[in-house]
């Protein structure tokens, strides 16, 4: 019974001890656990997999991806950070500001902003992108200050690149995930100990209930915890709690730089991984020369 429980723990939880982390690696491969069928089963995956959107704000998306392995979840994150292309296509931005003024009333056009850059279609670009409105995401970035008699007349070239070349090309600001925390109280924690316990975790994680005149600690919302492991510094408490993370529950946060909404970034990342697979499948299917 105890062995069964520890196998389940090994398969489903990453455990944080006072020193180090246990069960970090994925081990549910065929042949590793007698009595488990770990061969890949798409139906089982599709039944168990789910996505919950937690927060959707201007430029930020937080969602839970449950029932997936680190290898795949990490591929999505890596693609978001490194293999994304800007949707702006090669365009020309001439910029000219002639007279300038001292503080704002004296001169005209003495401050050159990013909004002054305009897109000039080259070749058939105007036909290719009829409704295109290519422009900087923020139009109030100061580029230069001018004085009367000075002018700027430049032709700028806009290049589309990939984040792994240079971060400036990436439309993704941050993309990260963490595993869902799982906190278990192994024994009842009461009164003074309960209050100390509450202080060991982030606000809102532990709540104190009044049961028959006693203060009893209860895990209210483990998700809020940041796992400072403060609890392991208290001799009396460290053996009463198990800190773990749910192995297949990913809490993703994706922030956009403003070029594309974050949900589009995620769907595009998934499509890029599919494209990678397709690239090699196509090559496998080319007639071998014999």
């Amino acid at each position: 019974m105890a062995a069964e429980r520890s196998v389940a723990e090994m398969r489903e939880r990453v455990v944080l001890g006072e020193f180090g982390v246990r069960n970090v690696h994925t081990t549910d491969f065929p042949g590793n656990y007698p009595g488990y069928d770990d061969a890949w089963d798409p139906r089982r995956f599709e039944e168990e997999f789910r996505v919950d959107v937690v927060r959707e704000e201007d430029g930020v998306l937080e969602f839970d991806m449950v029932g997936i392995d680190a290898a795949v979840a990490n591929a999505f994150r890596r693609i978001l950070l490194a293999e994304f292309q800007l949707k702006i296509k090669c365009s020309r931005n001439p910029e000219a500001a002639r007279e300038s003024s001292d503080p704002n009333e004296l001169y005209f056009n003495h401050k050159v902003y990013s909004k002054h850059m305009t897109w000039v279609p080259l070749g058939n670009q105007a036909d290719l992108f009829p409704d295109a409105d290519f422009r900087p995401v923020h139009d109030d970035i100061l580029i230069a200050l001018l004085r009367p008699g000075q002018e700027i007349d430049v032709l700028m070239h806009c290049v589309k690149g990939v984040g792994k070349d240079h971060a400036k090309f990436s439309p993704v600001a941050t993309a990260s995930y963490r595993l869902l925390p799982d906190i278990t109280l192994l024994q009842p924690v009461e009164d003074e100990a309960a209050e100390t316990l509450q202080k060991c975790f982030s606000p809102g994680v532990i709540e104190i209930q009044n049961v028959k005149g006693k203060k009893v600690a209860r895990v209210a919302n483990a998700r809020l915890d940041t796992f400072s492991r403060e609890v392991f510094r208290h001799e009396g408490l460290k053996n009463l709690v198990r800190l773990a993370r749910v192995r297949n529950h990913y809490i993703f946060t994706v922030e956009s730089t403003g070029i594309l909404p974050p949900d589009v970034l995620v769907t595009e990342a998934i499509k890029i991984l599919m494209g990678k697979c397709q690239r090699f499948l196509n090559e496998l299917d080319t007639v071998p020369m014999e």
């Binding site: 890949w40 798409p42 995956f45 599709e46 997999f49 789910r50 996505v51 969602f63 991806m65 997936i68 795949v72 999505f76 949900d263 995620v266 769907t267 998934i270 499509k271 991984l273 599919m274 697979c277 397709q278 090699f280 499948l281 496998l284």
Partner: peptide
């Protein structure tokens, strides 16, 4: 490769 494609397709569908 095919299984990974299947995973991505399902993740994409669920997400959308």
């Amino acid at each position: 490769l095919n299984d990974l494609m299947g995973v991505c397709q399902h993740v994409l569908d669920t997400f959308e």
